[in-house]
């Protein structure tokens, strides 16, 4: 065997290894085939001891099988959306302490590499004498999305459940959507993305957004793969302060994990608003003003989050 063959074999081998390793529930099936556990447990009866001291045998439990409803959809299937739902997000600016946990979690779970950041946290100060505050900014998932309007090939689309996604198997890379988006939420893969190994061999779905592709646009997707499973998006669960609320407008409830509240009441009580209402884009993201703040506003050094500062101090 010459060196080159050896290399490619190794690569192939590693690829399958990672496929197995990168398992979530989905990978489970393949894992079974590849892992050595198979021989040990398969088809075996296991013994359980009951209260009265009898040992009885039950069927071997299997790892939870992937349910078809919950695996990320194909590019065609992803256009449908979850029937009857209308997802909204509420971001409570009064709780944001710029710890960037949301951003890290988003990057990690979407396997984002390079400079593409889907969820940005800005320091906002609109006038000289207005108060500064931190503003996390995901995609607004507008109900009248300007980006979708201008897409020449329906690569970005609006789903029935309110989510705007990008299909990077169809995108032609004209970047018109980036020009059209008044919130600048979109990023472009200028070069071949440095795919993290976990994504090797993973089948692309617009619902997860990875593996990324060179020459295509990507953006925050509201984690529809999680929503499908009844789970909250990664930024919501990662935030230690409960800044992000996610929910279904049709059932008038949003949740940040710890608290679950009526959407209409939350907006009414705290004076919720949307960004740039004047543009008529009808965002699905609502903001609660930065009043009665959880943290005093602290401007970190450039390129440093408040969290880092605390660690140093």
């Amino acid at each position: 065997m010459n060196n080159e063959d050896n290399q490619s074999d190794r690569r192939k081998f590693l690829k399958y290894g990672f496929l197995a390793a990168g398992l979530t529930v989905v990978g489970g099936g393949l894992q079974k085939v590849l892992s050595q556990d198979k021989d040990k447990d398969a088809g075996k009866k296991v013994k359980v001891m009951t209260t009265d001291g009898k040992v009885i045998e039950v069927d071997d439990a299997h790892c939870k099988a992937a349910q078809s409803c919950c695996s990320p959809a194909t590019p065609e299937g992803a256009r449908q959306g979850i029937p009857g739902k209308k997802f909204v997000m509420v971001i409570d600016l009064s709780r944001c302490g710029h710890e960037l946990k949301c951003q890290h979690s988003c990057q990690r779970y979407h396997h984002l590499s390079g400079m593409n950041v889907w969820l940005k946290v800005f320091k906002m100060q609109e006038g000289e004498h207005t108060a500064p505050y931190w503003m996390p900014k995901p995609c607004m998932h507008c109900d009248k999305p300007p980006c979708v309007k201008v897409c020449p090939v329906s690569a970005t689309f609006k789903r029935e459940d309110g989510i705007v996604l990008v299909d990077n198997t169809r995108c032609i890379g004209c970047r018109f959507c980036m020009a059209a988006c008044p919130y600048s939420t979109r990023s472009f893969n200028w070069e071949e993305p440095q795919l993290l190994n976990e994504t090797t061999g993973v089948v692309y779905s617009p619902e997860t957004g990875f593996p990324q592709k060179k020459g295509t646009v990507e953006k925050c997707d509201f984690c529809p793969d999680m929503l499908k499973q009844g789970k909250l998006p990664h930024c919501v669960t990662a935030c230690p302060n409960g800044v992000f609320f996610m929910g279904d407008l049709n059932e008038d409830t949003v949740s940040n994990g710890a608290e679950t509240v009526r959407f209409s009441k939350l907006i009414k009580d705290k004076g919720g608003y949307r960004l740039n209402e004047i543009l008529g884009t009808e965002p699905s993201v609502y903001y609660l003003p930065a009043v009665k703040r959880l943290f005093p506003f602290q401007d970190p050094l450039p390129g440093e989050s408040n969290e880092d500062k605390e660690k140093k101090g």
């Binding site: 201008v150 020449p152 090939v153 169809r170 032609i172 890379g173 970047r175 893969n189």
Partner: peptide, 26 residues
């Protein structure tokens, strides 16, 4: 030349959206 994915030009014919100014331009 400006397109990120010139290899997918055919998509304009397959999935063209008459709502897009790019299609009008083409």
């Amino acid at each position: 030349v400006d397109m990120g994915r010139p290899d997918r030009m055919i998509n304009m014919a397959l999935h063209g959206r008459i709502q897009s100014p790019i299609i009008w331009d083409v």
